[in-house]
Amino acid sequence: MEAIVDFALLAGLAAWAVAIVRLRSLFGAAMLFGIYSLHCALIFVVLDAVDVAFTEAAVGAGISTVLILGTLAITGIKLEVRHTRALIPLLITGTIGAALIYASVDMPLVGDPNAPANLHIVPDYIEGSATEIGIPNVVTSVLASYRGYDTLGEVTVIFTAGVGVLCLLGRGKPKRSRKPRG
C-alpha cells in the first residue's frame, strides 16, 4: 500500500521539477522550489528517513527559500528567466540520462533487503547502537559517533558558508583610525 503513496508522491515531484524547468517567472520558480523541497521531505518520510525529512523540511523549504527570497528582494522580483539555446544542454543531459538508465540495469531493486548496501556494515551499526552506544536513534549514533568525523566536516562546511557570506556581504564598522583623510 505504501508503494502507491510512494508512486504518487514521486510522480508529483517529477511534475514539480518539470514545472520549474518550464516556468519563466523567477519568483514563481523560487516558490515552486519551496514546495518542491517540502514534497521531497514527504518522500523521505515514506522512505523511512525521518531525520532526513526533518532536515530537508527545515533547510530546503525553510532556509534555502528564505535565502532565495532574500536575494530576490535585493535583485528585484519581476524577472523573467531567459533560456539559451537548448540543443547542447539537451544533448548533455540526454547523454548523462542514458548513462544512468544504463546503470540502472544492474541495480538492486528498491527495498530489496538483500541488497549489498543493506547487508554489509549496517547490521553492525544497528546492533552497536544498542549495545556500544546505547542510543535508540541509530541515525544519531552513526552520525555523531561512528561517522562523527563526517559530521565535524559538515559543521565545518556550514561554518565555511557562514564565513563566506559574511565576507561577501558583511559590512565592517567604519574604521576611521585607518583612514586619516576620512
Partner: peptide, 29 residues
C-alpha cells in the same frame, strides 16, 4: 497520516516543524 500509515506515529515532530517552517516562510515572503 503517513506516520499512522507506516505504523510509526511517533515522528509527528516533523509535522510540527513543517507547520512552523511554513508559517515562517509565508511571513518572510
Amino acid at each position: 497520516v503517513l506516520g499512522f500509515l507506516m505504523s510509526r506515529p511517533d515522528f509527528l515532530d516533523i509535522a510540527l516543524v513543517y507547520a512552523l517552517i511554513n508559517f515562517i516562510g509565508t511571513i518572510a515572503v
